[in-house]
């Protein structure tokens, strides 16, 4: 593995995605700010905006950085350079993940800060937010695997839609769990065992998805 080549590829892709990345970061931070307004309707709208920004960022960044490179034949140009498939795969998956994580982490971090800074906010909501954000990250990783394996915009959109449906089911199920729903209005921050179990499963799913994405990319026979 050539660390220098990976760094160059990573920075190149980061530069290529600078404008959408900036847009999603601004959109995400604005959504987080709306979600923290001391008004129930604003909180709901802000939450929906955050989910929308996350889903849009995921599909757009996968499209710009991964699918477009294969469809536009720019990958042939990149792979004609002294870069191995391992360098390419590691750099590509890392940059797609990092560009998604920037607005994702920006939103989650600003929510965390605001939960503790705004007097009216309920810190107990934090585990709920972490579970939801990790669910969206896991959904993004699933989209990433789909894009790597199929190189198809159509299939990736199918997974996005499926992920969106599952997110709604997940939110409903969470709210129906007494140990979780009681957290949302709680003034104190607690991490019940069920929340920790869900977070562990989400982490495991994310790791497996990323591993599969790298492995599949490495097993690819033809790049052009």
């Amino acid at each position: 593995m050539n660390a220098q080549a990976i760094r160059i590829l990573f920075l190149k892709d980061l530069f290529l995605s600078r404008w959408p990345l900036f847009g999603y970061l601004v959109g995400g931070l604005a959504s987080a700010a709306v979600a923290c307004l001391p008004n129930e309707a604003a909180g709901f709208i802000g939450f929906i905006m955050m989910v929308t920004v996350t889903i849009a960022a995921g599909i757009h960044l996968i499209g710009v950085l991964l699918l477009a490179e294969s469809a536009d034949m720019t990958r042939t140009f990149v792979m004609s350079l002294p870069i191995s498939l391992l360098d390419y795969s590691v750099a590509k998956i890392a940059v797609v993940l990092v560009t998604f994580l920037i607005p994702w982490a920006g939103m989650l971090a600003s929510l965390m800060v605001m939960v503790f800074v705004i007097p009216e906010a309920k810190p107990g909501v934090l585990p709920f937010l972490v579970m939801v954000f990790l669910f969206m990250l896991a959904g993004f990783c699933l989209q990433l695997i789909t894009a790597v394996i199929t190189e198809s915009v159509g299939w990736t959109i199918v997974v996005v839609v499926l992920g969106n449906v599952l997110l709604n089911v997940f939110l409903k199920e969470l709210r129906e769990q007494p140990s979780i729903s009681s957290l949302i209005e709680s003034e104190t921050l607690r991490w019940p065992p069920l929340a920790l179990q869900i977070i562990s499963v989400e982490f495991a799913a994310i790791c497996v998805a990323l591993g599969v994405a790298v492995l599949f990319q490495l097993r690819r026979k033809d790049l052009a």
Partner: peptide
């Protein structure tokens, strides 16, 4: 595809690149 050292000394042009 796993070997990149030779490509350091090769220039490749393809019409569909």
């Amino acid at each position: 595809s796993s070997e990149s050292s030779a490509k350091r000394e090769i220039g490749y042009f393809s019409e569909d690149m």
